[in-house]
Design a protein around this nucleic acid. Structure first.
Lengths: 208, 208
DNA sequence: GACGATATTCGCACTGAGTGCAAGTTTGCA
DNA sequence: TGCAAACTTGCACTCAGTGCGAATATCGTC
């Protein structure tokens, strides 16, 4: 790796860390990009060479997560069906073997609930990831899934899990991390169970 | 209705119409709020008394749609199960007995695909509507559904349909409205079929 | 029909995100 | 060493959105 790239990575990392610090200390909206750039010791203008928007600071390695998920699809075994593969792929993308100490993950989750701009960004990334996964899944099972069915399948799974998660994270709910994890697990199973019993093969109408 | 309210409605309508006109003619990003306000013959500052953001212009009556959906849940018959009621409720919310001539609906759909800010807003509204519907559905079937399961169920349906829709609207796809409608119908069935075979009753773990 | 309470309008000044440009600096590579 | 490409940064700019305060319109009441 070249000197240039190393410096770039270091600056990028410094920006993320500075942002986490400031968001936690002063709040997201109260922190300006100028503040973050100053804390990372670069010019305000230079910030935009690293991140296109303020929200992007909260999703610094999303590409890698999606890529891991796609790799999981590519690495399927010969006996696997679409649903099993999808489950493993989604497990990958949601996996929070996340960033250092998961501090970012916690902050992100809080800001998604509180700041509309962050929520919007998160949802867009989720939809984009879904589409990508659906595309690859359909390609991996050309005989079982057409593109539309694949997108519907992925959407149903992700929708079920995020719906359950949203319900669990509502302010009126217990919020105990262990409970949340257990309930999400249960929600996944709720979403999953009916699909396992049926095969997903297209029935009836034609692929356009 | 008071004179005040009538004027207010008229101005609001004028803003939406002016916005549609300008968005179609010049593009969303090229049109400034000042342009829209001027076209509707009000001061720029006054605009924000009607809509909080530029995106909101594209979703002028979303509350009514969600309300109609909730009403559909409230109006369930004694023999209805959660899934049937949910299907009818969602049909309501997606129903495009929309605005005058559906011009807005078409524009909106295009901008959702093209403009990140609009997509973000649309997704946020969808999530909010989902949550509301899930809440009411759970309340309507206290014996069959806990809150988390209800949210998962609604999420699975909406996710399946929007996933399919996204796949169908991809630029490489045919785009024939009749085909789109038929395929969305099919996607709904794909999402629906497994749920109908099983009952949705909670099995095993407890509601938190 | 006059009057005070309440809403609405809107100009002004301001903050903060994000862009385009152009000049200066650093790094990669031959 | 020296040139090309990439990176940094300041400056000026546009636009969304907010806070404030004064002027104006509407409402309900007497």
């Amino acid at each position: 790796m070249s000197l240039r790239e190393m410096k770039r990575q270091r600056t990028r990392q410094a920006l993320v860390e500075a942002a986490i610090e400031l968001f936690e200390r002063d709040g997201y909206e109260q922190t300006t990009i100028a503040d973050i750039a100053a804390a990372a010791e670069i010019g305000t203008r230079t910030f935009f060479g690293y991140f296109a928007t303020k929200e992007d600071l909260l999703f610094p390695e999303s590409d890698a997560r999606v890529a891991a998920s796609l790799a999981e699809i590519a690495a399927r075994g010969p006996g696997d069906g679409p649903v099993e593969v999808l489950l493993r792929a989604l497990h990958r993308v949601g996996d929070d073997s996340d960033d250092l100490t998961g501090r970012l993950a916690a902050l992100r989750l809080r800001l998604i609930q509180q700041v509309p701009a962050v929520r919007g960004k998160a949802l867009q990334m989720q939809v984009a990831a879904q589409a990508e996964i659906a595309r690859h899944l359909a390609a991996a099972f050309p005989d079982e899934l057409d593109h539309v069915t694949s997108a519907a399948l992925v959407g149903a799974f992700v929708g079920a899990v995020t719906g359950a998660l949203a319900a669990l994270l509502e302010p009126s709910m217990p919020q105990d991390p262990a409970v949340v994890q257990r309930e999400v697990q249960r929600a996944t199973e709720v979403a999953l169970r009916p699909w396992l019993a049926h095969d997903v093969r297209r029935q009836g109408s034609r692929t356009p």
